[in-house]
Every structure is written in C-alpha cells, then in structure tokens.
C-alpha cells in the first residue's frame, strides 16, 4: 500500500510574525520557513507504517513555489521515499490544494492520504476534509492513534469531549492531531541520502486543476496590543469588573 502525505511550507513556529505594512498579508521575505508541524506528524506516522510493514511506499506531496522542494526534502530526510511537487507561484487556498491532491491521488492510487489537521499559518483545517469529499473517501480527522488492519483503519479521534473511536474503510484520508506521535529528527545520514531521492515536479495546468482563489482577503491586521493588568482589592471589586468592564460574566 502506498501512503501519500502532504507537507506544507510555512513560516517557522519560532518566528515572530509581522504584518506587511500595506495590510495585505504577513511578511515572508527573509523569514525562516519550515514544514508545518502537523505535517511532520503525518510524515512520521506514514514512515512508522512503512517500518511496521503496513505501507510499502511513502510519497511526500507539496504545492507552492520552487522552495517547497526543501520541505519535501525534509520529509525525504525523515524517511519518505520520493516526492511530488506541484509548482506554482499562485496563492493556494485549501480547495485548490485539495483538488491538486486529488489529481495526484488519481495518478498514484495510494491506500491512505495523511495530512496535518491544519497548517500553522492560516489554520484553515479544511484541506483533508475537502479532499475526502472530492474523492468520495472515508475521512478520519484529528487522529490521536491509528491502526491499519484488513482494509480498514481504526482511528482514535480527539473531539471536544475527549476521545472517540471510529473504524473507517480504506482508501481513506486521515488528518493528524498533535498527540498522534513525536516526529523523529532528520538524521545526518538520512539528510545525505535524501539528496538522491527523486522529486517529480508537476504544474497545476498539466493536472487540469484551476487553482484560482475563491476567497478574497480584505485586510490583515496585528491583534490589539495586550493592555497592562491592574490589581483589585476585593472579590466584590473583581466580580464587578469582570461583569461590567470585561463583560465575561
């Protein structure tokens, strides 16, 4: 069984995000970029499946500018076998990525697609679900634990009230939550080996996918600065302020 994992190139989680002066987005020039942490978990899970013999090949997919090669290369250094890059400088929204993924799934015929539940830049939490809908496949979102057996996947899901156990038929789409696993380091020997692993580059046109944005961003602003705190003298004063000033009770 092939497993396809999607990896997104995002601003590194350690970077302090700055809004562009013209309020059209966030500053990405000269900023350290890394693999979306939820996608690292997806890669790790796929590699573990291969190590356990549940998967035969792990393919890392990314869509975006040429530099996304580097993100795929990270997945290859963790242990993925080969990469597929859909290269475009266009703005990609979740629906477009889901359509690109569907085109690659049609071509590669994986038994499972594992994606992060969301990316830490736009926090959309949509691509996995959209992909499953486009494919007409089962979907297990927010996976906390996975078990592949006899053409189905047991998924322990993180839901608001706790954990939910479901069993879905394969082929399926899985989206990963934080506690699914702890991703490994890309070790030095594997970094060196990753250089030689193939990355196929495709164009959206060749896949017959229209990636034109369907959503329009009107304005991006910094969140308001946090105001300094105050000390209250009595519980009564605290309750009064919470009720009348903060409006939280």
């Amino acid at each position: 069984m092939k497993v396809l994992v999607a990896v997104k190139r995002v601003i590194d989680y350690n970077v302090k995000i700055r809004v562009k002066a013209d309020n059209t987005g966030v500053e990405t020039a000269n900023v350290k970029m890394s693999m979306n942490p939820f996608d690292e978990i997806a890669v790790e899970e796929a590699i573990r499946m291969k190590e356990k013999g549940a998967a035969t090949e792990v393919i890392a997919f990314s869509a975006g500018p040429a530099q996304c090669q580097e993100t795929i290369r990270t997945a290859l250094a963790m242990g993925a076998d080969r990469g597929v890059l859909v290269q475009t400088d266009a703005e990609l929204q979740p629906l477009a990525v889901a359509k690109l993924l569907k085109a690659v799934v049609d071509k590669e015929q994986p038994g499972l697609v594992i994606v992060g539940k969301q990316a830490i830049d736009d926090d959309s939490n949509q691509t996995g679900q959209m992909l499953a809908a486009l494919l007409g496949w089962s979907v297990g979102t927010f996976a906390n634990k996975l078990n592949v057996a006899d053409g189905s996947v047991e998924v322990k899901r993180e839901v608001d009230g706790g954990l939910e156990n479901i069993k879905i038929k394969m082929p399926a789409v899985i989206t990963t939550d934080l506690r699914l696993n702890e991703p490994r380091y890309a070790s030095l020997p594997n970094i060196m080996k990753a250089k030689k692993k193939p990355i196929e580059t495709l164009a959206p046109d060749a896949l017959g996918v229209d990636v034109a944005p369907r959503l329009k961003t009107l304005k991006v602003e910094e969140p308001p600065k946090r105001k300094a705190g105050i000390k209250v003298k009595t519980v009564a004063e605290l309750v009064e302020k919470l009720r009348n000033e903060a409006g939280v009770i």
Binding site: R9, D12, V15, A29, N30, V31, K32, M33, S34, Q67, E70, R73, T74, A77, Y185, A186, S187, L188, I191, M192, A194, K195
Partner: peptide
C-alpha cells in the same frame, strides 16, 4: 538563502541547513 532566512553564503547548502534544524 531565503528559505532558511539566513544571509547568502558560499559555504552552506540546503543539507547544512537541514542538519542545523536537526
């Protein structure tokens, strides 16, 4: 040099930066 956010250098490649992250 841009993806890693480091200034350009003739000495460091993508592999060096991947190793740095590790």
């Amino acid at each position: 040099a841009l993806p890693s956010g480091r200034p350009p250098s003739p000495f460091y490649t993508e592999e060096h930066e991947a190793f740095r992250s590790t």
